[in-house]
Structure formats: structure tokens, C-alpha cells
Simulated assay, not measured.
Amino acid sequence: MLSGYGRDARILIGANALGQTFLWFSFFIMPFYLKALGYGMKAMGVFFSAQTIVGGLFFLLAGPISLRLGYRRTLLLSALAGLAGRVLQVSAANWGVLFTGFVLVGVNMGLRQPNYNAYLSELVPDDKRHEAFSKSFGLGTLFNSLGVLLAGFLPGYLMGLSLAEETAYRVTFSLSILQFIFVIPALLVVRDVEVKEKRIRWERALILKILKFSLPSALIGLGAGITIPFMSLYFKIRFGETLSAISYVFFFQQLAMGLGSFGLPELVRRYGPVRVITSFQGTATFLFVIFPSIETFVPAGAVYVLRAILMNIIWPINSSFMMGFFKTEEKATANGIQQAFSTFMRGIGNSLGGTLFALSLAYPFYATALLYAVATGLFYTFFRRYN
């Protein structure tokens, strides 16, 4: 599957995939872990906001740091910060220790993705970039699905062995540390990519290119922030389902996205990246419009999985498409700014979503659909001639 790439690209993609097992795992289990530790929704909001804000700030710093350190060492710094953060979250000795853990995980989040995308794009030929990004996403998402399933069932199994609830969730969450046990050794053996230009020429054309990618991402981030963090609670409140039943929804979502992403490069070759991205996002937008009207759990879960596939499966193509517009020294900075736009708006969306869900279980989905529709229209307008 990865035989067409060089050694370093194969190591990077493989380590990323193994590490991804415990990325969505940690996102999925975190609210339940904090609840078991005795923290309420208000404290959770503070923790999540701190992580999001710090992540957004380091998205902006990801490019300048990589120009000084290189992509590999910046990714290594990111992984070490993430490892320290997870250790503190597992310890959770007190509120301050836990808060510091969220801050460090935010640093990891902000430094990692822009530099991973930039690094991978430099390790593979341009004609294989869409394929490499899709395979990296697909493998990572397949491993994600296993992590979500494990997170859904392990706490109940451990409590069945007479472990206290807090202990069961702490033991389960401690597995999130394994993400970095896979990633750090891989980063120690790969070679860095030389960045000849150590500074970026901030010309008008460059700024406009970054804004054209960032504005649709900001709208999608705002829409996603309104609904996505609340989905597990939505299924529980609307349909009264258990944690293990809800985990199946997210398991099938990740599994289907992972498998589907391997066929995506062929669609891109046939129809072009812009048509694929906008058609998938447009269909996902329609599904969010009808989602609140579904009254039983299984059809709602199926529609949510399909919507998630359509909306998320195209992100590696979006990232790969974006990398083709920028020079080596510009890639991490441009991608970091795009991710920062999305992250800050997602944080605003979290607050809006809480308010809208308090008013109605339907309003948030209509708001998200509207934002997705505008974002899709903007993206098509900006890039249709590059299809």
C-alpha cells in the first residue's frame, strides 16, 4: 500500500496511523473521564477552551517555529509536549495539574497538523500527493475506529471487575499515552527536509491565497463547533442510549471513513479536487438539514455516519490541494493560519452550540447547515478554475 513512497514517508504515515488509535480514543472518552473525576460541565468548558485557544495560538506559531527548527524537530517538540500533557491528565493530581495537561495537549495540537501536512507533502512526489494524504488519513481513521470502540467498552468491563468508576476511567484514559510511544521513536529515525528559505516574503498574492483557504475553513469550524462536541450527549438525551451503543456510531463513522478514503484519489483523478470537495460538502449539508427530524436512534446514527464521512473524508484532499499552492517555506505557516481560523471559530461555535441546544435540539443543526452551505459556495467560487 505504501511501497510507492520513500522510507521516511512510509515511517511517517505508519507511525501516524498507529498513534491515531489513541487520538479519537482520548477525545471520545474525555468528557466521561472528567465526569468520573468529579468535574462538572463548567470545569470541562474551561479545560476544553484552554486547549482550543492554546491550539489556535500554536497553529499561528507552527510555521515560524518550523522555519527555525525544521519540520521533523518541530513535530518531535509537539509530540513531547503532547506526551507530557497526557501524563498530567492521567495523573490529574489537582485542578492545576489537569489544566496544565490540557494546555500542553493544545501545544501538541497546534504544532502537529500543519507541520505533518507540510512534511508529508515534501516527502512524496507532487503526482502522488493526493494519494499519500488520502492513504495517511485512511489508515489513521481505521485505527481511530478501533480506539473509539475500545473507549466505549473498556470502562464498563473494568467496572465489571470491581474497579471503582474513577479508577476504571483513569486506567482507560491512560492508554492515550501510547499515541506518543509510537510517534516519538519514528520521528527520531526519519530525516528532515531542508528548508532553504528561512523567511517568508509576505506579498499580497500570498496573503490572498491563505485567506481564500482560511475563510471557508473558518465557517466550517464555526459550524462544527456548534454541533460536533455535543453529538454523544445529543444521542443520549434524544434517544436515551448507553455509552457503548453510542460508541458504535463513532466506530462505524471512523471505519467507513477509513475504508472510503482509499477510493478517493480515483474520484479526484476523474472529477478533480474542487468538484469532489464541494459535492461531498454539499450533500453533507443537506443531511444536517434533515437530521433533527429523524426520530429513532438507528436511522439517526446511520445518517450521522454518512454525513461525517462526506464532510470529513475530503479533508486530506483539501489539505493536499492546498499544499500545491505554496512553496516549501510557506506550507506550514499557510496551513497553520488556516487551522487557526478554523480552531478559533470552533471555540466560538462551542459557546453558540451550548446556547442553541438549550433552546432546541434542532436549531444547532440548521445553523451548522447554513454555515456549511456558505463555506462550500465560497470554496467553489475561489477555486473552481483550478479543478
Rank of each mutant, 00 (worst) to 15 (best):
S3E: 15
S3P: 05
S3L: 13
G4I: 12
Y5M: 11
Y5I: 09
G6R: 05
R7L: 08
D8V: 09
A9I: 10
R10A: 08
R10T: 10
I11T: 10
L12R: 01
I13W: 06
I13L: 12
I13A: 05
A15E: 02
A15W: 01
N16F: 13
N16P: 06
A17Y: 03
L18E: 11
G19P: 07
Q20A: 15
L23E: 11
L23P: 00
W24Q: 14
W24F: 15
W24K: 12
F25G: 11
F25E: 12
F27N: 14
F27S: 14
F28D: 03
I29N: 08
I29Y: 08
M30G: 03
P31Y: 00
P31D: 01
F32E: 11
Y33F: 14
L34T: 00
K35G: 09
K35W: 05
A36T: 07
A36V: 07
A36K: 10
G40R: 06
G40V: 06
M41W: 04
M41T: 12
M41I: 11
K42Y: 11
M44P: 00
F47Q: 02
F47L: 14
F47H: 04
T52Y: 05
T52D: 03
I53R: 01
G56N: 03
G56L: 02
L57E: 00
L60N: 06
L60M: 14
G63E: 02
G63P: 03
P64W: 07
I65G: 06
S66Y: 05
L67W: 08
L67A: 10
R68D: 05
G70V: 09
G70T: 07
T74C: 03
T74Y: 02
L75D: 00
L77E: 04
L77M: 13
S78R: 01
S78P: 00
S78D: 06
A79R: 01
A79L: 08
